[in-house]
Simulated assay, not measured.
Amino acid sequence: MIIGIPKEIKTLENRVAMTPGAVETLVRRGHKVLVEAGAGLGSALPDEQYAAAGASLVSAAEAWGAEMVIKVKEPIAGEYKFLRKDLLLFTYLHLAADRPLTEALLGAGTIGVAYETVQLDSGALPLLVPMSEVAGRMAPQVGSHALEKSQGGRGILLGGVPGVPQASVVIVGAGVVGANACKIAVGMGAQVTVLDVNHARLQYLDDIYQGRVVTVASNEANIRKAVTYADLLIGAVLIPGAKAPHLVTRDMLPTMKPGSVIVDVAVDQGGCVETIKATTHAVPTYVIDGVVHYGVANMPGAVPRTSTFALCNQTLPYALKLAAKGVGALREDAALAKGLNTYEGKLTFAGVAEAFDMPLTRVSEALA
């Protein structure tokens, strides 16, 4: 198969879909790999390494002209022109928060396989986990920076100092993002409260932190109370492939402390905070009702080398299956089949269909 790896063009997105090592693996399996010149530079992976791995260095149009395109982030408007019916696109899509892209993929007839909805029988999301780990660990870090007075925050040191209380960090969601955010926030010395609807997850955190973390059942009353004492609120809620529910509502904002900070990691799925909107690394924050909002939709792009290798470790095995058998791999691998979001003009993922009230075609029907 001919595989294209274009350069990411989203604002300050420096990740690349495949490392030179992954490219070498694909080439050794008999595939032709087209890498856009400069695609890896943001991750400190020069063109020479890709050429040595057996890739052909090409233009953006040539990379997009491949049979399968592997990316990191969803196509943005300037890339819609490359979408077509005979293209297999393997990347993060996050369609439930992006109707224009959904319509562009359907209109072009592109086969879109989304990293974030590939799902094992256990419910695990293997291609979302590595970036959730990165974003979760980054959340207290960027939140701590946003709390600085020069950034519009309350002027609080997350870990405090002897004689002065540390900051209060409230994490809504105890999944991969929440657990990783908790780990770093505790390590930075903050007072940490975690809310979740899954009692088993709360038990897990209670056990490993042995009382250093306050665990609270997630419901409207408890969230409403928690936001009032949060210096830093981290949104870490996920419904696989679907739009995130607004658990922190607009009317809760005036009850938060002036200069407090919200970091909503769920922003790429619409966000679990009603007032969140997607921002960029160039302009990451804005203020509503005195509360600083951080809504960068590609947080791991700030640490691209770490993120590129972490992501490629997980995506390569699935990329190899798709390269070897194309659409046939979806028929043979149930987890990969759940990644199918669009197929030749049909919408095949329920969460996206529900978000936009669009007709749904079952994956089995689409592939029949």
Rank of each mutant, 00 (worst) to 15 (best):
M1I: 09
G4M: 09
T11M: 09
G21Q: 03
L26Y: 11
L26M: 15
G30H: 09
V35T: 02
P46A: 15
G54H: 03
S59L: 14
S59K: 12
E62D: 14
M68A: 10
F82S: 13
R84L: 14
L88W: 09
H94F: 10
R99D: 08
P100N: 01
L101F: 10
T102H: 10
E103L: 15
L106S: 09
I111V: 15
A114M: 06
V118S: 01
L120S: 11
M131C: 00
V134S: 07
V142S: 06
L147N: 07
L158F: 09
G159L: 02
V161C: 10
P165M: 09
K183W: 14
V186K: 12
M188H: 07
G189I: 04
A190W: 07
T193Y: 08
V194Y: 08
L195D: 01
V197W: 04
L202Q: 09
Y204E: 15
L205H: 11
D206I: 11
Q210S: 13
Q210I: 07
G211M: 10
G211K: 04
G211F: 05
R212G: 03
V216T: 15
E220M: 06
N222Y: 07
A226E: 12
V227Y: 03
A230V: 12
D231V: 05
L232P: 03
L233F: 06
G235N: 04
G235C: 11
I262K: 06
V263S: 01
V265A: 03
V267R: 01
G271E: 02
A282I: 01
V283W: 07
P284Y: 00
Y286M: 01
V292Y: 00
V292S: 00
V292A: 01
A297G: 05
N298E: 00
R305G: 08
S307Y: 02
N313W: 05
Q314H: 09
E332G: 10
D333N: 15
A334D: 14
A334V: 13
K346D: 04
L347D: 02
L347A: 05
F349P: 03
E354F: 06
D357W: 07
P359H: 06
L367R: 04
A368N: 10
